[in-house]
């Protein structure tokens, strides 16, 4: 039995998840006030009604849109700033300490300022997602540019490569695996930033409905919505992780 489980870790994993769901089901049905928690079976059944709640699909779409835009901007800004900092000694010496300093600040402290500047609409959420997501990407790009083996640059130069060719065919591919690990961390950051901002204040996104379901003591729908968000996050993370393993295949 033990040997079978060792050879099929997926089965054991599934078992653990099932056990947790059963525990939750039992606790929710018989031991905990239904004002605060719903059993998973009921949450699952209620998913339909969550979607049927007026404006919830639009809110989900809006949050997804915020995530996508924030992630795209984080990648673009992260790559550009990362290259600027990583490719020049001057840029590295001057800006890297600043990047590290900013990265170290818990950004939740400046969320109100974002709301003040960008309003309570999607712009603030996107901006907050971008500032969370771009730092790990900057760091990854800088690392990816700098961990290049000098002999590869020398060898490219000896074969007549121009600066542009070196950037395109040596620096860029060397950076890719690092960039993807940065993008995975960046995706986690974007999710954190966007959802934090959503929950803090929201008029049309997911945050609005979570606070509404909370205030109405409707844990079934609240859990359903949170579940949908979690699924969204897992799917997005998985997408980037796939990209990462795909592009890291040459790593020796």
């Amino acid at each position: 039995m033990k040997r079978y489980l060792l050879r099929h870790p997926g089965v054991a994993r599934l078992g653990v998840i099932l056990l947790m769901l059963i525990g939750w089901e039992i606790a929710a049905r018989w031991f905990i006030d239904p004002m605060f928690i719903s059993p998973p079976s009921r949450v699952l059944m209620a998913l339909g009604s969550v979607f049927a709640t007026p404006n919830v699909p639009a809110a989900l779409r809006l949050t997804f849109f915020e995530l996508a835009v924030a992630f795209a901007l984080a990648v673009i800004i992260g790559v550009v700033l990362g290259l600027a900092v990583g490719l020049s000694k001057f840029g590295n010496k001057t800006f890297m300490p600043i990047v590290l300093l900013l990265y170290g600040i818990p950004q939740i402290t400046i969320l109100p300022i974002f709301i003040l500047y960008f309003g309570i609409g999607p712009a603030a959420k996107i901006a907050f997602g971008v500032t969370h997501g771009m730092f790990p990407i900057i760091m990854a790009v800088v690392a990816g540019v700098q961990n290049i083996k000098p002999i590869l640059l020398t060898s490219a130069r000896s074969m007549g490569a121009s600066n542009w060719q070196i950037l395109r065919h040596v620096v860029y591919p060397n950076m890719i695996p690092s960039l993807f690990s940065g993008m995975r961390l960046g995706m986690t950051g974007v999710l954190l930033g966007v959802l934090l901002a959503e929950l803090y204040v929201s008029t049309g996104g997911i945050g609005y409905f979570t606070s509404m379901f909370t205030q109405n003591f409707d844990p079934t729908k609240l859990l359903g919505l949170v579940g949908i968000l979690a699924a969204m996050a897992i799917a997005l993370n998985e997408l980037v992780r796939r990209g990462e393993t795909h592009f890291a295949r040459w790593r020796d």
């Binding site: 590869l152 000896s158 074969m159 007549g160 040596v170 591919p173 040459w250 020796d252």
Partner: peptide, 20 residues
């Protein structure tokens, strides 16, 4: 500077691009 049309190098370290 480098003269790629006249001179080719081979180094001690592995200088092949690992991603290709």
């Amino acid at each position: 500077g480098p003269m790629p049309n006249d001179i080719a190098f081979i180094f001690q370290e592995n200088a092949l691009f690992p991603w290709s």
